[in-house]
């Protein structure tokens, strides 16, 4: 990599990091409430149930609450895994006997499904 490419790489990284930081404490609801819901299947459906049990009370519906919002975070999965396993700031860490790797993977799939379907909400009259 040429020096100019390296500089570009670092600058891009810093810009991304800055964007992440700016969004890090956001509380905004990034979707109109109660639009049509996507069908969750397989891993994402399992993730929804695990999210409700382990995450929802601090990040209700993925929005801000006791903790910051998750719906608007573009963090890569490895950062989210790191956060969950090690805990940072006020967030407690979750050991594997509290939240298995399979459950954590499923939760990440569920969060991706929410991002890909930003109008996630109620499925009327089911």
């Amino acid at each position: 990599m040429a020096p100019s490419s390296r500089t570009t790489h670092v600058v891009a990284s810093l810009l991304l990091a800055g964007a992440v930081f700016c969004g890090g404490c956001g509380t905004a609801r990034r979707r109109p409430p109660l639009g049509p819901a996507p069908e969750l299947t397989g891993q994402a459906a399992m993730g929804e149930a695990a999210f409700m049990e382990k995450c929802n009370r601090c990040h209700p519906g993925g929005e801000a609450g006791l903790g910051p919002a998750l719906n608007d975070k573009p963090f890569p999965d490895f950062l989210k895994r790191f956060q969950v396993r090690h805990g940072l700031g006020a967030m407690p860490h979750f050991e594997k006997d509290q939240l298995s790797d399979a459950q954590l993977d499923a939760i990440l799939d569920y969060l991706k499904a929410l991002h890909q379907n930003p109008t996630r909400a109620s499925k009327p009259g089911a």
Partner: peptide
């Protein structure tokens, strides 16, 4: 840089 900033954003903003 990314890890530090992002985790700072996630973990630090509560306090």
């Amino acid at each position: 840089v990314i890890t530090g900033t992002a985790t700072g954003a996630l973990g630090g903003c509560y306090r």
